[in-house]
Design a protein around this nucleic acid. Structure first.
Lengths: 129, 129
DNA sequence: CTTGACTCTATAGTTACTATAGGATTTATA
DNA sequence: TATAAATCCTATAGTAACTATAGAGTCAAG
């Protein structure tokens, strides 16, 4: 299939597909007579793997590492495990940050007092301190 | 004070300060004879306001809007309020996403089974499906 | 008067894409 | 069969919010 169909089947934009290729996350596909990229179902599987990693917020670099590891089936999976643990730690850290953000934003929202002038607004006051 | 001291007092890097100036988040400071930027305590207050906004993940664009609103003390603060509410919605959305991420990552981590080969690793399997 | 610390501007790099310009190729229609 | 429309190609620039570098100028101390 050509890139248009590949794009629709995978749910990735054409530009993103070409970008992934440049970055080494997709193998260079065969080309048609007129230099069009031609993909098969194996390429589709690989792209779906990448998409799954990205949906977990795993960076392209780490995704690339996972792809490489995937091609060494006999090696120990400890580095795979470490990578996921690290990703989990990252998510936990960000969640903690967001909880703090949320608390402060809520407090600010309730400090507004509505229908105030900006001068009297509790939000601006708390941002200013 | 010159930019070095301003940087230390504010906790912003020198490059970031110059960047904020270019982006209109800090007023153009006076310059010394030799063209060095000179800051006063008012500038420091403004930078701290910006830092506070950024610590709440408010975009530079929105921060700029808040600064502009701050200079119109008699206007209604409803747009300030709306901006904070919107930021809160954004934080809530991201938290929800992260909770889902966390759940999947945890499941994957526990599916690894440790000391496996990559071929048998539950993580790679689940990324592949 | 020179060394070193500090500052200046302008530019490029970061991440993960998205968007555009300017062509070439293929497919569908007249 | 001619041409128009759809699809594809590469190369380049833009996004957010910085960070890092190069190459040069300024200033205080020894």
């Amino acid at each position: 299939m050509k890139i248009g169909e590949f794009s629709k089947k995978s749910g990735c934009s054409i530009q993103t597909i070409r970008y992934y290729e440049r970055e080494g996350l997709l193998l260079n596909p065969n080309r048609s007579e007129g230099n069009f990229r031609l993909y098969d179902s194996k390429a589709l599987k690989q792209l779906e793997f990448v998409k799954h990693c990205r949906s977990l917020d795993i960076s392209l670099n780490d995704t690339k590492r996972l792809l490489e590891l995937k091609n060494k089936p006999e090696e120990s999976c400890s580095s795979v495990n470490a990578l996921i643990d690290q990703q989990l730690a990252l998510v936990n850290k960000r969640m903690k940050e967001l909880r703090a953000l949320k608390a402060e934003l809520q407090q600010m929202a309730s400090a507004c007092g509505s229908n105030n002038t900006i001068e009297a607004c509790g939000i601006i006051k708390s941002l200013d301190s």
